[in-house]
Amino acid sequence: MAEITLVQAVTQALAHEMQADPRVIVYGEDVGINGGVFRATEGLQERFGSARVLDTPLAETMIAGIAVGMAVQGLRPVAEFQFMGFIYPALDHILSHAGRFRNRTRGRLSCPIVYRAPYGGGIHAPEHHSESTEALFAHIPGLRLVVPSSPARAYGLLLAAIRDPDPVIFLEPKRIYRAVRQEVPDSGQALPLDCAFVLREGSDITLIAWGAALKETLEAAELLAADGIQAEVIDPATLKPLDIHTIIDSLEKTHCCVVIHEAARFCGLGAEVVAQINEYAFDLLEAPVQRVTGYDTVMPYYQLEAEYLPGVARIVAAVKEVRDYAKGRGL
């Protein structure tokens, strides 16, 4: 079996569901003839026709709105926004309608929509092409927020998202679209939503990261192991709702934690993770939870991207600070 990239796994999952379920409609800017700006929908229009893979105008408000209409009439739309930075005109329909329909109709109608968007920095893009504003959507009731971090998880989680009866924001970390290859059988086997994945087991500290930030987090864990610090690495995958139980299980072993994400620090999702740890597992901690994040500024242009994104050195330094604090207390 050939190994595929994360973006190819997205294509494979879309094709599988379109073949299995005629209600699945894929549409967005340039997704048909060109196969999308990152080629995530390449070949789908030729295979399934222009009635099911539609090119739209450059109109994000319309893209979000017609998905609601499609979904409440029995279809399962998968709408692509070219970049997360282009999604803001669509917020009204996503927040005011897609996320509320189940409540508004007292369960009579739901919105089985997947809104896909490449997100995050690290590809030397211009302004509005490197956004990491996932916390906006995590705050909204009625929305599920999913971020894959590998080809296998992209395939399985996208299948689950399309099959879910409620709207899912599916953010694809474009920095690792083609950075990793895995064998991903086209089995149609979905991965569970709302469940975190333990990517590396350890006993000394818990590292929590998602999306592209997991690349540096796993590299940091390897360096720490050389210093005798065994880090457990957790990928939440579904950021809303958060699987806090897996995190607590890890803290029962490690008693220390660092949260890593590339979004801005203030009100980033790391703050919610820390809050839930403090609420449900405070007695397990031997040191305050540290965050390694982006800065409270607009993502800079490519000359400074590497300074903005959480790197291995910053993660290792945070881990050692937490461990030193615990040791200083004699724990």
Rank of each mutant, 00 (worst) to 15 (best):
S250E: 05
A287C: 08
L159S: 09
F86M: 07
W210Q: 07
V259S: 01
R52T: 10
A281T: 09
Q8H: 07
G122H: 02
E80G: 02
T206F: 06
D21G: 04
L224Y: 13
P22T: 10
S149M: 11
V147F: 02
L331T: 09
P300E: 00
E262Y: 01
F101W: 14
I87H: 04
H255M: 04
M70E: 08
M18E: 01
L239G: 00
I63D: 09
I234K: 10
I247R: 03
D30P: 08
N34E: 12
E305Y: 09
E17K: 12
Q276R: 14
A225K: 15
F48C: 04
E321A: 11
G28S: 03
Y177Q: 01
H129I: 10
I244W: 01
T41N: 09
A263W: 00
D164C: 12
I66D: 08
V10S: 05
A67Y: 10
G188P: 11
R329Q: 09
V24P: 05
T5L: 12
V114W: 04
E262S: 00
F101M: 13
V68H: 10
A313S: 14
Q73W: 08
A213T: 15
R52W: 08
L159D: 05
L309M: 10
C257P: 09
A326V: 14
G85P: 07
P173H: 04
L191C: 01
I87S: 15
E262H: 02
H97D: 10
L193D: 10
A313K: 15
V273A: 00
H128R: 00
S150W: 02
A209F: 02
E131S: 09
Y88C: 04
I140M: 15
P89T: 03
H16S: 13
T217K: 12
Y27D: 08
A135S: 14
S250M: 07
A221I: 14
V24M: 02
T293P: 06
A59C: 15
A287S: 15
G294C: 01
A275E: 10
G202C: 03
G142R: 06
Q12I: 03
Y177V: 00
F38I: 01
A220D: 09
P118W: 00
I229Y: 06
P89H: 01
Q73I: 05
V258S: 00
A179K: 01
H255C: 13
Y119N: 11
I33P: 08
I260T: 00
A196I: 09
P22N: 14
E307N: 12
E134H: 11
D164I: 08
H16K: 12
I248P: 04
A318P: 06
P288E: 00
